Simulated assay, not measured.
Amino acid sequence: MSNAIEYRLAELGLSLPDAPAPAANYVPFVQVGNTLYVSGQISMDENGLITGKLGDALDVETGAAAARRCALALLAQVRAACGGDLNRLRRVVKLTGFVNSTPDFTDQPKVVNGASDLMVEILGDAGRHARSAVSAGSLPLGVAVEIEGIFEIG
């Protein structure tokens, strides 16, 4: 499946970033049995942090694109946890998305769909997962989106 995942990423014109290093006193992932818990990945791309507040300066489409970047960072952490072998990834179990949004913004699920849809685009049925999408009054460094994930690995 690793070659399939890398092939699918290439088909989509995507590549995984290097797994981001933790910014504080925590680890990027913890494995318990076949379950891999990946710490929250913040929205950033090759130009740096994707910042802003949904319902104010950012629209749903921009937020969904930021969530896609979080999904790529999550997969990069999975790759790192698996010693570079994405073939060990069995499925996405759950994503929890935090959206930096105004009190009246109610489209958090549409924003987090950016990550969910990408997981399914890349992994097919193995990318389907349970999920939460919640509002946050602010997020670290002012980022637009942060997403954490739980994965089954072999």
Rank of each mutant, 00 (worst) to 15 (best):
S132R: 09
R69M: 09
V32Q: 12
A65K: 06
A73N: 11
S2D: 14
I5V: 15
G137I: 05
R68W: 00
L54C: 15
A57D: 15
L95H: 07
P109V: 15
E152K: 01
V30M: 08
G84M: 14
R91G: 10
E121Y: 03
L86N: 12
L86I: 12
L54A: 11
A65W: 01
L123S: 09
A67G: 08
D59M: 04
F105G: 08
E61N: 12
V112Q: 04
V92K: 02
D125F: 01
E46V: 00
S116I: 12
A130Q: 08
S132A: 11
T51C: 13
L89V: 10
E6D: 14
D56W: 02
L49I: 10
T62M: 08
V92A: 14
L9F: 12
E46G: 07
A80G: 02
G33I: 05
A81V: 07
V93W: 00
A73H: 14
Y7S: 11
S15L: 13
F151V: 09
G114E: 00
G142P: 04
A80H: 11
S43R: 10
P28M: 08
G127I: 03
G83V: 03
G114K: 03
L49N: 03
E148F: 00
D56A: 15
S43F: 02
G55Q: 10
G154R: 12
D107W: 07
F151Y: 12
A57V: 14
G48T: 04
G83I: 07
Q41P: 01
A64V: 06
L58R: 04
A126C: 06
V60P: 02
D59Q: 06
